[in-house]
Design a protein around this nucleic acid. Sequence first.
DNA 1: ACTAATAATGTGTTCGAAAACATAAGAAAT
DNA 2: ATTTCTTATGTTTTCGAACACATTATTAGT
Lengths: 346, 346
Amino acid sequence: MDRKYTIKDIAEMAGVSKGTVDRVLHKRGKVSDEALNKINEVLNVINYEPNLIARNLKNNKVYRICILLPDPEIDPYWKPCIKGIEDAVQEFRAYNFSIKTFFFNPESKKSFLKKNGAVLEMSPDAVLLPPLFHKEALEVVKKYEEQNVIVNIFNNQIQSDSIKSFVGQDLFHSGRVAAKLLDLLLKKGQIAVIHIDESIKNAIHMQEKERGFRNYFSERKNQDYTITTLKLKNPNVEINLTNFLNENPDLSGIFISTSKAYQIAKAISEIKDKKIAIIGYDLIENNVSYLNQGVIDFLIHQNQKKQTYLGVTSIIEFFLFDKQIPNTILLPIDIVNSENASFYIE
Amino acid sequence: MDRKYTIKDIAEMAGVSKGTVDRVLHKRGKVSDEALNKINEVLNVINYEPNLIARNLKNNKVYRICILLPDPEIDPYWKPCIKGIEDAVQEFRAYNFSIKTFFFNPESKKSFLKKNGAVLEMSPDAVLLPPLFHKEALEVVKKYEEQNVIVNIFNNQIQSDSIKSFVGQDLFHSGRVAAKLLDLLLKKGQIAVIHIDESIKNAIHMQEKERGFRNYFSERKNQDYTITTLKLKNPNVEINLTNFLNENPDLSGIFISTSKAYQIAKAISEIKDKKIAIIGYDLIENNVSYLNQGVIDFLIHQNQKKQTYLGVTSIIEFFLFDKQIPNTILLPIDIVNSENASFYIE
DNA sequence: ACTAATAATGTGTTCGAAAACATAAGAAAT
DNA sequence: ATTTCTTATGTTTTCGAACACATTATTAGT
């Protein structure tokens, strides 16, 4: 079973021409029952797999993929996504793909709608976007559907039959992971869940993470913990945090639901003789620095790069190889400490 | 820059025939300076990238890759590797590759040499193997070199110029990760490093991991810990462990360097009112079960599946797309607790 | 000056799938 | 019986790179 069968092989085996075989394979009719049977008999015996290289050489259509991405200049959280896209482009540069990224302002629904309008104008074959704004996202998804544009989403989930695939993390479980880590570190005491909300994208993330976090403890029915939620907004983070710490001298652990753990770490590290366990998100430079100093205990890696990489490559492989796109791709929730951080950063 | 330039395009632009362009591109000489200059001028302006689909269609050689794998029936540690190979085969089934796996007995150097002999007979284009036996591995690598067979290794590193690439984890750092986790959990006390050695493959792993583990603590110059090394061998693991525990009543943490943490966990879980932190390796069923019960605190995921997957795909992509194979591919050291384990298991 | 040798360049075929195009055979219509 | 239409089937071209093969131009040798 070394060499692969070709259409020509099948034609010879069935005693017909390759044109007829082609018609049978593509169910285009105009084939006599006799020829159909002969060919089917051959197909039942051998395992024909079309040579996708040859197919792609012939159908040398340029597939157009558009990606909507929040501007990393506005929110650096999205920066690794660009690398993910670049990696995908690089990997498939041999094939005919035209991949274009559109930046929108993650704090403006209007910007989101506007850039989607621009994408629609291009009538691409597929679109990848993070549906930050629920209502607006459903709106644009509907429009893409009407134009037969495949839509893949990443970062956060929204429900719509028109969406082909979602790539991201299970945020609820991500909260549970954080809870488990704090539980191990502390065993008891007062814990604060802190949301530092500088961008709307986090609204959904924050909720789900806190839900998972609290769910873990409520499941244990552990009475040794008290959990307090605190919402902070820049530029008053430091003042409000200091007040909170003064009011709660027994605080022993903090879970920060966004990538701004370093802001908390900075304040905490200035307090002498006080060890408060800190768990945050994302391997941005400031966070990793406090992780290495031992101020932050764990970071949870959200793998933004891989999200876009898989979002794009799954579309490409669908077009190239008819590979089915999974409905949901859940990335692992990576636990990072000072010792393994470097392996996740590139 | 939507459409790609072809050899025909270049020929037309330079006013020569595609045969001449081909000779220039492949540096096969027999080209006049005049023609060479004209073509180079064009090549300097445009960015020519050969269509790899067309190239592969023409050169439809069947590449032969052989993989040597310790028999998973003898040591289940290697079982996930099969899935990794299968995934790679599946992903590139459209291309002409013949991939064959040879099982050898991981406890027998003779078996290793014999199977390598069988592989050599096949004169494949590339080989992927875990160099479990240092001397023997160097021997076979030399033979492959003589026959111009590309050799990639995984699992553990050995030094040889004839080896194209290594995929695996940094075992030293993996030990440090474990140390950091125990440090966080305990802060002080007596720690045991336990090696349960049922297979020679672990010898190298065990050493490096312990070295990393101890290195972490020695770097901290932390006097609050005492670290003891314990070597256990089946079937006497349980008895010797019990003795050790009786002799060391203050033991507070255990680091198991192999995938047999569940054996320790079983014994510990039977002791009431005693919490000993346990860190082990590998997401095998027994381990995950004790992880979920809270007996094992963390498992470190060695990602065997991904090792073979990347080992194979990097070879394939080298043949198909001239993609350079990285000298070293270090996989992240994944920290696993009860809450994120499911995302690493398939 | 004419042939032989060599260098330079152009042309044609191949890979496998796809689809346009061409032809053959048979049935219906005049 | 001849033409027309339909249906089934076979043949050819296309995609781009690679390379074998064919052709032309140039120089060397007698």
